[in-house]
Amino acid sequence: MDAHAQAFWLPKSGSTDSEYEDAFFPRRIKRRKGQRLRFAIADGATETSFSGVWARLLVSAFVRRALGFDFAPEQLDPMRTKWERIVHGKSLPWYAEEKLASGAYSSLLGVEFWQEESEGQVKRLWRAAASGDSCLVQVRSDAIVAAFPITESASFTSRPDLLSSLPATNGTSPFIANTEGQWGCDDTFFLMTDAMACWFLKEGEAGGHPWAILRDLDTEAETSFSALIDSLRRECVIKNDDVTLIRIDIHG
């Protein structure tokens, strides 16, 4: 099995690259081969501090298989300790200290692809887990086959359930959604943080083909990602937020 994955990202308009708080893997265009392939995307919350650090730790843990599909507290705890180590120990002004006490929050969406053979039949399978509003959409033959964990654009809010860097907050029972499905050789998977996912689903609901626009990004047809997002922001059809997309084409 091999996969071709390409990531695209852009900070919120008016913010610098260093203020971008999404996280994703793989970081660059990548052709990946393997028995089981993992990809992940995360979105650190604007209203908490050091949330970009927390988002990166979560993505890294998932793709290294330090985190399973239940995002179990005992697997999150080492990430929390690591986050604490990174952000504490500095002398901070009063507001930064207070803010830090609330912890950082992030969404996380992880997916794994694999194949199984039984009785001469090849089964192509995928499985995903999510906390929050980062989304996966599977597209086949010009139609959406699956959207996860959010299926309608109207369901996005600015107050999602997210994973906390503090165990006392929601560490014992973080809200996790799981799903699984089968993939085909011509399928494309799109992993997106909320602003892009909301636009994608809304376009689809209106009869549009957003996947066709995203398939052509940065290929020979050459519509650059930043030009696309700039134009969507100008038309006010996408929220001004950090935007991240991973486009994955899987082959048997």
Binding site: D43, A45, E47, T48, Y105, L162, S164, N170, D241
Partner: peptide, 11 residues
């Protein structure tokens, strides 16, 4: 006041 994503669990 909405300045961006606010976790539902934040108090």
């Amino acid at each position: 006041l909405d300045i961006g994503t606010r976790p539902s669990a934040l108090r």
